[in-house]
Amino acid sequence: MRITSAQAWWVQIPIETDKQHVSDFGRLRTFDAAILRLETDDGLVGWGEAKNAAGSAGTYGTLVHLLNHEFGPKIIGRDPADITWIWEDLYNGVRAEKARVAGHVMPELARRGMTIAAISAIDIALWDILGKADGKPVWQLLGGRKSDQMRAYASGGWADKDNIGNQLQSYIDQGGFDGVKMRVGAMDGTPYRSAERVIAARKALGPDVDLMVDAHGTFNVADAKRFAYLVRDCDLAWFEEPVTGDDKTGMAEVREASHVPISAGESEATRFDFRDLIVGRCADILQPDPACCGGITEAMRIGTLASSFNLRLAPHLWAGAPCFFAGLQVCAASPASFTVEFSLGANPMIHELSKNPVEVQGGMIAIPEAPGIGLDMNEAAISKFAIKG
Rank of each mutant, 00 (worst) to 15 (best):
V243G: 01
A346V: 10
T339L: 09
L311V: 07
W238S: 06
D276E: 15
F227P: 03
L344M: 15
R232E: 15
D273L: 03
A333G: 11
G345V: 11
S267Y: 04
L317F: 07
H259T: 12
D276C: 03
E266Y: 05
P261I: 09
H351K: 13
E256M: 03
R226Y: 00
F338M: 00
K225W: 00
L311W: 07
M349F: 14
R255I: 05
Q329A: 07
V243H: 02
L286Q: 01
H259D: 12
V340A: 02
F227K: 04
D289A: 12
V254S: 01
D235L: 08
V330I: 14
I262Q: 02
R271L: 13
H259A: 11
S263H: 09
A333Y: 01
P348N: 14
W318D: 10
M251S: 04
I278K: 02
P242G: 03
Q287W: 08
P315Q: 05
E253K: 10
H351C: 05
E298F: 01
E240C: 10
D223W: 00
F227L: 05
E256S: 12
L311P: 06
C323V: 04
E268R: 11
E253A: 14
D233R: 15
P348Q: 14
G303H: 05
G250R: 06
H259W: 06
E266H: 10
I278S: 02
A332C: 08
M251D: 06
N310H: 13
R271D: 02
S337H: 07
P242L: 03
T249S: 14
A252L: 11
G294T: 06
L344I: 02
E266F: 03
I350K: 03
P335D: 12
A336M: 06
A319F: 00
V330R: 00
G250S: 06
A336N: 04
P261E: 08
A333M: 09
F325E: 13
L328A: 10
A306M: 08
L277C: 10
Y229Q: 10
V231H: 12
G294Q: 04
E256D: 09
R271S: 13
R275N: 08
V279S: 06
E241M: 06
